[in-house]
Amino acid sequence: MNLLPTSTSTNIEEQQPSVAVLPVGSFEQHGRYLPLITPAHDEYASSRRASISTGRSGTRRPTGLLGVS
């Protein structure tokens, strides 16, 4: 999983995406043994499935982290 963007604006322009998927997840504790990034990771994985299932050319953006608890 790559939560940090590595694409340049030139890369995105060459792809000519018709849609952008912006996953949004939280950064919070889930007990002693799960990482803090668990909800954001789930959203990132969901956005990957969504962008594949649409069948449209698209680009996924980095996960936006909302809330800290």
Rank of each mutant, 00 (worst) to 15 (best):
Q15V: 12
V68T: 03
N11L: 05
R60D: 00
T10E: 13
M1C: 02
M1I: 00
I52G: 01
H30W: 14
G31Q: 08
A45C: 10
H30F: 08
L4S: 03
V24L: 09
Q29R: 13
L66Q: 07
G58D: 01
L36M: 15
P39I: 14
R48E: 01
S26E: 04
S26V: 13
S9W: 13
N2S: 06
V21P: 04
T63G: 04
A50L: 10
L36W: 05
L34T: 03
I12H: 01
L4E: 15
S9D: 14
G31N: 06
P17M: 08
L65G: 09
L66W: 06
H41Q: 01
G31T: 08
I37Q: 15
L36E: 09
S9Y: 06
T38L: 14
S53F: 15
V24K: 05
S53Q: 02
L4N: 15
V68I: 10
L34F: 07
R32D: 09
S18T: 03
P62C: 05
E43P: 01
Q15I: 11
P62M: 02
S47R: 08
P62N: 11
E13C: 07
Q16I: 05
A45Y: 00
L66I: 11
T6A: 06
R60H: 00
H30Y: 09
H30Q: 11
S9F: 04
S57I: 11
E13M: 02
P23Q: 05
M1Q: 07
S18I: 05
T10R: 03
S53D: 09
P17G: 03
A45P: 07
A20C: 07
S69K: 15
G58T: 13
L22F: 12
R49L: 10
R32M: 10
S46M: 13
Y44N: 02
N11R: 10
R48Y: 10
S51R: 15
T54V: 05
A50I: 12
P39W: 09
D42S: 11
S47Y: 14
Q15H: 07
P5Q: 10
L4Y: 06
T8P: 00
L34H: 03
E13A: 13
G58M: 08
G55H: 11
I37R: 15
T38H: 15
